[in-house]
Computed example of a mutant assay.
Amino acid sequence: MRQFLLNWNFIVEQGGRLLPTRAGVLLFGRAQYVRQLLPRPVLDYQRIDTLFERWSPEERWHDRYVFEENIFHTWQGLVARYMRIAEHPFSLDPATLRRNDDPPDYVAFREAAINLLIHQDYGDHGRKASIKLFTDRTIFWNPGDAFATEAELLDPTEKEVRNPAIVKAFRRIGLSDQAGTGIRAIFRNWHELGRTPPQLTNDKARKQFELVLIKKALVTETMQRFRQTIGAGLTPEQADALTLALEMPQITLTDIRGLGITTTQQAKAIADHLIGQQLLESLSDTHFQAPEGLRERFAAAAEMTIGQGTLRVGAQPESQPESQPESLPERVLHLLQTAPLGKSEISRALGQRKVSGQLNKTIRDLLAKQRIEMTLPDMPQSRLQKYRLAESNKEPKA
C-alpha cells in the first residue's frame, strides 16, 4: 500500500518522513484530516420525492446526507444510497449467461457522480457539490467549471482536468470509464433508455457546472403517430433529431450529437438531410429550428391526443366540436378547464419542451384581462405557481 501511495504521489518523502499530499488526504485521509484541509462538505446528497416543478426550496427533503469523509468513502456511501432506491430488473447476458441486475441508469449515474467527485474545485471552500434526486430528474451541481466546451466534452479525447491525481486514481482502480469518455457514456446510456438528452450547463463566468438527467421519453406516442404523417423516410437518428427540434425552440449540432451521434460531421449530415426534406430550417452553420408550419401541425396533434385519446394524427373526426380551441389563448383556457396547471405543465400539454416566450406573453395577457388567475397571487415567482380559470370564464355547471 505504501509503495502504491509513493508511486502515484499520494505521499512524499520529506526529511526522512512520509507525508501525505493534498490529493492523498482528499482521496484516502481520515475524516478529521479531510475537514482540516476542506472546511466544507465534499457532497450534499438530497432525495426529494416530488416533481422538480412542484418543489420549493422551503420544502423539506425526504432523505439527506452531507458527506464529509474522504472521496472514496463518499463514493461508497453515495452508491449505497443510490442502490436502495434504484430499480433492479433481473436479466441474463445471452453470451455468458451471467446475471445482470444493475439498474438501467447505473452507467449514467455512476459517471455523473464520479464526474462530480473528481472534477470539482476543492479550492472553493464556500460552495459544496450537490446531488438532488427528484422523481422526474436528477441534478448534479459542481463548484468549478469544465475546462473544455460542451461540444468538446462529447469528443472521445482526453481533456485538461482540474485534479489530475484524483482523476487518475479513480481510473486506475476501475471506477470510471477510460479518459475522455465519461460524459459520452452518460449521453449514450440515457439515449439507450429512450430518454431526452441530458442537459449540460458549463458556466465559466460563475465557475460552476451542472448536469441534469431528465426521466422523460424522447419519443412519445403522439410523436410516433406524428412521424407517420410526415411522409418522409427517416433513419432512427434523423427521426430523433426531428423530435428534438419539435420539442425545443432551436437545436444545435451539439444537441444532435447528444442523441448518440459520434462526430460533428455526422450530426451536420443529419441536419442537412432534414433541411433537404424541409423538416428543418438553418439559422446558422450550427443552429437550426423546425419550420413554424410543422411545429403548428405537431402542436395540433398533441392537442388531439389530449382531447381525443388515440385519435390518429391527420385523420378528421366525424364531427368537430364548435368549441374546438384554435388560437394559443383559447388552447390555454381549454387546458385550464380541467384543473389548475403550472407553466411547464401547460407547455408540455401543448407539445413544447420548454416554456416559450409566446406562452409567457399569452399568460400575462390572460392575467391582465382577468380571464385566468394565479393560485398563489402573493408569490407570483413561486415554483409552485399555477394558473386557473377566473370565475367569469368557468363554464356553468349543469
Rank of each mutant, 00 (worst) to 15 (best):
R2Y: 02
F4S: 07
N7R: 12
W8E: 13
F10D: 07
V12I: 09
Q14R: 14
T21M: 04
G24Q: 10
G24S: 06
Q32F: 11
V34N: 14
Q36I: 12
V42N: 07
D44I: 12
D44Q: 12
Q46L: 10
E53N: 04
W55P: 05
R64M: 06
F67Q: 11
A80M: 09
I85H: 15
H88S: 11
R98V: 08
R98S: 14
R110Q: 15
I118D: 00
D121H: 13
G126N: 10
K132N: 09
L133I: 15
D136V: 04
R137L: 13
W141T: 14
D145A: 15
E150I: 09
A151N: 00
D155F: 13
T157L: 13
T157V: 15
N163H: 05
P164C: 09
A165L: 14
K168F: 10
A169M: 09
F170K: 09
R171G: 11
G180A: 04
F187W: 01
R188F: 11
G194Q: 03
T196K: 00
Q208N: 14
T220Y: 11
F226Y: 05
Q228Y: 02
E237D: 13
P249Q: 09
T254C: 02
G260R: 08
A267W: 06
H273F: 09
I275D: 10
I275E: 15
I275F: 07
L294E: 07
R295V: 03
I306T: 12
G307S: 12
T310G: 09
V313L: 00
Q316W: 06
E318Q: 06
Q320Y: 11
P321Y: 10
Q324V: 08
L335C: 08
Q337S: 12
T338P: 00
A339C: 03
E345R: 02
Q352K: 09
K361I: 07
D365A: 11
L367D: 15
L367V: 13
M374V: 04
M374W: 06
P380H: 03
Q381H: 14
Y387K: 03
E391C: 00
A398T: 12
